[in-house]
C-alpha cells in the first residue's frame, strides 16, 4: 500500500469518528428536548394549580364571574359518575372479548379482533362523540350523563381487550393443564385460575384506560355537555373536569383561568399517580417472574 492511501484512510477515520460522536450526541440532545415540555407543563400546572387550589374547590359549585370563591365540586362528581358509567360498559366488554380472543378464538378471528381494537384506538375520540350523539342524544332529545358515559366506555374497550389478551397469554400453559388434570371444567379454569393469575396485569390496563377516559374532553362536548349545577341523574347534562377546564380556559376571565389551572393540576396528578402505580405493579410482577 502506498503512503497516500494510509493518510487518506486516517482522514476518513477521523471523519467517521466525528460523525459518530455528532450523531450520538444529537440523539442524547433530542432525548433532552423531548423531556423539556413535559417538565415545563408539569411544573407550570403544579405551580398555577396549587396556588388556586383550596377546600372550596372540592366542595363548592362554580360561581358566576365576579363573585369570589366557588369550586368545581359538581365537575369532580360528574367525572366520577361518567367514569363509573364508562367502566360498567368498557370493563366487561373489554375483559370478556379479551378472554375469547386469548382462550378460544381461531387465529384469523383473533387477528380480526386485534385489527378492530386497533381501529377503535385510532378513531379520533371526537368521532365517538358524534356516534353517541346519533344513537343516544338525538333519540333522547337532550344531552345526558348517560351519553357521556357511553362515549367514555367505548373509548375504554380497546385498551382493556388488548391488555386482557396479552396478560392471558403470559399465563403459563402448565397452570391450565394442572387445573384441567384435576378435573376442573374449562370455564372454571379460565375464571378461577387464568383470570386470577392475570388479574393484576388486567387491573393495570383498566387503570390506564380510566386515566385516559378521565382526561377526555372532545367526546363529552356534545354528549355530557356540561352543567353549572349539581346533577346526579343520568338523563340530565352533567359537568366534568376536562369540559369545565375547556370552558374556563377559553373564557376571558382571570378568576376562571385560575380555577381551570386547579382542575388541570388535579387531572395531571391523577395521570401521574396512576402511571406510577401501574409502573410499580408491573415492575414487581416482572421481578417475580424473572
Amino acid at each position: 500500500m502506498e503512503l497516500n492511501s494510509i493518510t487518506y484512510s486516517k482522514a476518513k477515520l477521523r471523519r467517521r469518528k466525528f460523525v459518530n460522536a455528532l450523531m450520538l450526541s444529537l440523539c442524547v440532545v433530542s432525548a433532552l428536548i423531548t423531556i423539556i415540555p413535559l417538565i415545563y407543563i408539569f411544573f407550570y400546572t403544579t405551580g398555577a394549580g396549587l396556588s388556586s387550589l383550596n377546600l372550596d374547590f372540592f366542595t363548592e359549585l362554580p360561581k358566576p364571574v365576579g363573585e369570589e370563591g366557588g369550586g368545581m365540586a359538581n365537575a369532580i362528581v360528574g367525572t366520577l359518575i361518567l367514569i363509573g358509567i364508562g367502566s360498567v360498559i368498557g370493563i366487561p366488554i373489554g375483559i370478556m372479548s379479551g378472554i375469547y380472543v386469548a382462550e378460544y378464538s381461531k387465529q384469523l378471528f383473533a387477528n380480526i379482533i386485534k385489527f378492530l381494537t386497533d381501529v377503535l384506538t385510532g378513531i379520533p375520540s371526537i368521532i365517538i362523540g358524534i356516534f353517541v350523539y346519533g344513537i343516544i342524544v338525538l333519540p333522547m332529545k337532550k344531552f345526558s350523563a348517560l351519553a357521556g358515559g357511553v362515549a367514555l366506555g367505548i373509548l375504554m374497550i380497546p385498551t382493556i381487550t388488548r391488555i386482557t389478551e396479552e396478560m392471558f397469554k403470559l399465563v403459563p400453559m402448565s397452570l391450565r393443564e394442572a387445573s384441567l388434570a384435576l378435573g376442573v371444567s374449562r370455564w372454571r379454569t379460565t375464571v378461577s385460575i387464568v383470570l386470577r393469575t392475570a388479574l393484576s396485569g388486567i387491573i393495570t390496563g383498566i387503570l390506564l384506560a380510566i386515566a385516559r377516559a378521565a382526561g377526555e374532553t372532545a367526546p363529552l362536548l356534545f354528549t355530557a355537555f356540561g352543567n353549572s349545577f349539581w346533577s346526579s341523574s343520568l338523563d340530565e347534562p352533567i359537568s366534568s373536569i376536562p369540559v369545565q377546564i375547556f370552558n374556563y380556559a377559553i373564557s376571558p376571565y382571570e378568576e376562571w383561568h385560575n380555577k381551570a389551572w386547579a382542575g388541570a393540576f388535579i387531572l395531571i396528578s391523577l395521570v401521574f399517580v396512576i402511571n406510577l402505580i401501574v409502573r410499580i405493579i408491573t415492575r414487581q410482577k416482572y421481578e417475580n417472574t424473572v
Binding site: P37, I41, T217, P242, F246, A249, I268, I274, N275, R279
Partner: peptide, 24 residues
C-alpha cells in the same frame, strides 16, 4: 426513567396541552 417520562408525556390529557398552549 426515561421510558416512564415518555409514557407520562403520552398520558397527559390533550386539554392540558391546549391550555398550556394558550397561556404559555
Amino acid at each position: 426513567t426515561f421510558s416512564f417520562l415518555i409514557e407520562i408525556l403520552a398520558a397527559i390529557p390533550s386539554i392540558i396541552y391546549g391550555f398550556w398552549g394558550i397561556f404559555v
